[in-house]
Each structure stands twice: as C-alpha cells, then as structure tokens.
Design a protein around this nucleic acid. Structure first.
Lengths: 176, 176
DNA sequence: GTAAATATTGCACACTGTGTATTATTATGC
DNA sequence: GCATAATAATACACAGTGTGCAATATTTAC
C-alpha cells in the first residue's frame, strides 16, 4: 500500500526502496524481508490467483471455454479483490512499462497452472495447444479483471461471463 | 555473444557486467553504452522481429490464421536466425527463470505490433479480441521457433507452417 | 595531415539487494 | 507479573547495477 501510494504521488523514479520504507514506517532492511524488490511491493498479490481443487475441470467434458472461464473466475473468489487498490495498481503499471514485466510474470504463474490442467484434460500430445490455450485464457482473464476494476457496476461473477465472452469471440474469429 | 558465453560457462550468478565486459574486452561503462542490462545482452535481438510492409495483412480477406502465420514467419526472414546461438540462448533462459521476464518483454513488443494490425483489420470494436489473438499468435511463434532451433532438419519456411498448424489445432479445440 | 565526429573509458555517485550480527518485540509457561 | 524462548526489526558492511559527466582515444572526412 505504501509502495503504491508513493508511486502514484511521486512517480516510479522517486519510488526508491528508502521512500517506500519511510512511507511504511519501517527500515529498508525490513522492506526487503518481505519483498524481493519494489516492483513486487507495488503489484502485491493483487492479480495472482491460485487454482486449487480443480479436479472437476480435468474430468469435465463440457464446453472447454466455459470451463476455463469458470475455473479462472473461481480463482478470483478465493480472496476478494480490492477494486480501489487494483485501480491504483493498474494506473501505476500503465504509466510505467517497467512494471509490465513483473505483472506478466505473475500472470504467467497462473498460466502455467492452467496449462498443466489443460494438458491433463486434453492429453500430453496436445501439450503445445495446452500452453497456447492457457496463455489465451489468462490474458482473457486480465482483460476481464481490468474491465471489472474500471466499472463499478460489474460484479465478480460477471468477470466469469466476460472471460467466456472474450474467449468465444476469439474462437469465432479463428474458426471463420 | 560474450554474455551468453559467460552465462553458459559460469552460470547467471557469476555473470556480472564486469565478467561480460572482460570477456568482450571492453570496459563495463562501454557495456552499458550498448545494453541497458545484462539480460538484454544475453537475449540480444535473437527473437525480436519487426513487422513492416504489412499492408497486405490488413487488406487480406483470406483465412486469418494462415495470414497470421505468414505475417510472423515473414518477420523471421528479415535477418536470418542463428540456430546455434539461439540454442544457447534458450538453454540459458531455461536455466534461469529471471530471464524469462525479459524474453517475454521482447515478445510482447511483437505482440503489440500484431495487435495493432489485427485491430485495423477486424475493426476497433474487436480491440480486445485483437489483443488476445495477437498474444496467442506470438506465443505460437515462440513455440515454433523453439522447435526450429532444436531440430536441424526444420527450415525457416517450415516455421510458418508450424505456426499455422499450432493455431489451427487450438482453434479446433476451442470450437468443438 | 589536420579537424571534426564518434567511441571508449575513468570516476563519482545513487540505488538495489543480501548476509550477518545485534537489538526489539511478542508469545509462552509458570 | 515475570523470566525465557521465539520471532521480528534493524544497523551495518558489502557486492553489484546503472547513469551522468568529463576526459581521452579512435575513426572519419576533407
């Protein structure tokens, strides 16, 4: 929170670990006990979602896009997102391409999990396809979450709907 | 080249900017005149491809997946890839997750270009879909290039074929 | 062969990140 | 309450990153 505050107030250039530590009222050494770097402090755990108890996904034979949307949307329910904080984080990330990398790294971790589940469901001869589809899905998730953050009328449930809509729309384009 | 050499020989931990500079026979200051950081030195321009003269892509009404594969494959022809160097780079990246970020950053730049072209072709009401499809395509490119690097019998042209195959396979899964 | 343009380098400096030892703080049992 | 153990915070030293700037070397052009 301190990191985001400083970054929004003073810009990322002025957001030294020292400035964050002062804002948080701790020493810089303590800061590094909790975050590996300032990027991690700014991004926090806002986006990362852990996929657990997803046996149903592997077994299911329903429409795969809907299952993916459900899987990703379900991850969001674990610990509810803070819309105001997320908006601030998005603002900082948008203004600082440097942060984009680490944001992607977080999303990639989710993508990896999804990829594993997909490979189990589809079979290991579709490993490449699993990775591609996982990437596409997590990107659809990102788009949906960003849309959710910006629109106060959206519920968390509607994120699932949005993800499914995004994926279906892409599949329509691809299959034409 | 010096950066990759040192990274493979001594591991990324030991690959300080000083070590790279010594290997290259230059000062560290000169190193930083050419690369912003050691990650950039290791990755080089191996993957990045610039999309130019892609008017045909925007105008075309052919199968979009084939056009995408053609577009990406064409970018590879600009300056021919060095298979041996690429293999080394892939080895270093695989061994060091830290580098993964910067690799993705490079690929993202390509993705951005593709996204812009797609949005022009599909219309701005399909902006989200354009971004998703661009991401999927560049990821398919990465998979294909990695496969190419590992298989000496593959030609650069077959990368295009591979990309198209990957995309078609995914679309088949999505549309089922 | 000289002068201008360009490249390389040395140096100082602010910042990042980690290991280690020391000091606070908190928790626990009695 | 109080001594003690566990945990957290901090100070400090240090290796490394990256940049600005001025000085020096090298190349280019005429």
């Amino acid at each position: 929170m301190a990191a985001v505050t400083v970054a929004l107030r003073n810009g990322l250039d002025q957001t030294t670990t020292e400035a964050i530590a002062i804002e948080a009222g701790i020493s810089t050494r303590t800061f590094f006990n909790y975050y590996n770097n300032k990027q991690a402090a700014i991004l926090g755990e806002a986006i990362r979602l852990d996929i657990k108890g997803a046996g149903w996904f592997v077994e299911s034979s329903g429409p795969i896009l809907d299952d993916l949307a459900k899987l990703l949307g379900q991850g969001l329910h674990e610990d509810p997102l803070d819309r105001a904080l997320l908006l601030k984080i998005i603002a900082v990330v948008d203004a600082n391409p440097t942060l984009h990398d680490m944001f992607r790294t977080q999303v990639d971790e989710t993508s990896s999990s999804i990829s594993g589940l997909l490979e189990t469901r589809l079979g290991s001869d579709l490993a490449i396809e699993s990775r591609l589809l996982a990437e596409l899905s997590t990107r659809a998730l990102t788009e949906a979450v960003v849309a959710w953050a910006a629109d106060e009328t959206m519920t968390v449930d509607s994120v699932t709907v949005q993800i499914a809509a995004n994926l279906r729309s892409v599949s329509k384009i691809m299959c034409q």
